[in-house]
């Protein structure tokens, strides 16, 4: 090791639990936690407390705003479309947060749960691959996309995440519940990987908001948009995964 590391302090443990560390430091703390079970327990408790606070209080975000609090804003002229957009967004938040508060991973027996299950499994299985992370590389992107579109029998696209520092490595065909599914893999300069799992909309379900799921250090957002269901999975900060999911959504909507 030619690189000198700053010792891990209690402040790092808090920042780790609060997702406030940069990826490099985060990794250092992770390594530390693997070797120090008491510190790992400490962090786990902090994270559970954070989750618990959301479970206790996020429902307030969904409540209608009491009219006495709105009086002032009524007197001014604000733009209608934006107000409506804000209302819709608040509703959507309700849905999203309802899910966050619900305990993430515990999403029962619905078809979408199976989709998320497959997406997590595929992420965990293929991202550690050094030599063969993908079946078809990004250098053959066009072929890859045509192939997957044909096999899934739905218009598959490979979104770009370059603005977040993640480049497309390539993709592969998967089997999920006896049907073809697709996985695209992305990697940033630090070697962190994200995967985008795509399969046909399970049972023609309606579009959904972004929903969050996590399983230890693996976390992701999933949603249904038209005839396809998606899950964007990674092991980095939730905010990064959220941004990536948002980028994917925007590009696919075009």
């Amino acid at each position: 090791m030619n690189e000198k590391r700053k010792p891990i302090t209690e402040a790092d443990l808090h920042a780790y639990a609060d997702n406030l560390l940069d990826p490099k430091r985060r990794q250092e703390v992770e390594q530390y936690l693997e070797q120090h079970s008491e510190a790992a327990e400490q962090v786990r408790a902090y994270q559970e407390i954070n989750t618990g606070l959301h479970q206790l209080f996020d429902h307030v975000l969904e409540e209608p705003i009491p009219s006495r609090l709105k009086q002032k804003s009524k007197t001014s002229h604000s733009s209608k479309p934006l107000q409506i957009a804000a209302m819709l967004a608040t509703l959507a938040i309700g849905t999203a947060i309802g899910w966050l508060g619900r305990g993430e991973w515990n999403i029962g027996q619905q078809p979408i749960a199976q989709m998320v299950d497959h997406a997590f499994t595929a992420h965990v299985v293929y991202t550690p691959e050094v030599k063969h992370p993908v079946e078809v590389g990004a250098n053959e992107e066009k072929h890859l996309v045509n192939w997957l579109t044909k096999r899934l029998d739905a218009p598959v696209k490979a979104p770009q995440l370059n603005t977040l520092g993640y480049e497309l490595l390539g993709g592969r065909l998967l089997a999920a519940e006896g049907k073809p599914a697709a996985q695209f893999m992305y990697q940033n300069g630090l070697g962190n990987r994200l995967t985008l799992f795509i399969r046909k909309n399970p049972n023609g379900q309606r579009d959904t908001a972004f929903r969050f799921a996590n399983n230890d250090s693996v976390r992701g957002f999933y949603w249904i948009d038209g005839e396809l269901g998606y899950a964007l999975i990674g092991e980095t900060e939730r905010t990064t995964i959220a941004k990536a999911a948002h980028l994917v959504y925007e590009q696919l909507a075009q």
Partner: peptide, 22 residues
């Protein structure tokens, strides 16, 4: 503008309420 300001504030009401209730 007044309208912008009012809107900015209004959109934070749910969070202010969540915090206060906690």
């Amino acid at each position: 503008t007044m309208a912008d300001f009012s809107q900015l504030i209004t959109q934070h009401i749910p969070r202010l309420r969540r915090y206060a209730k906690a």
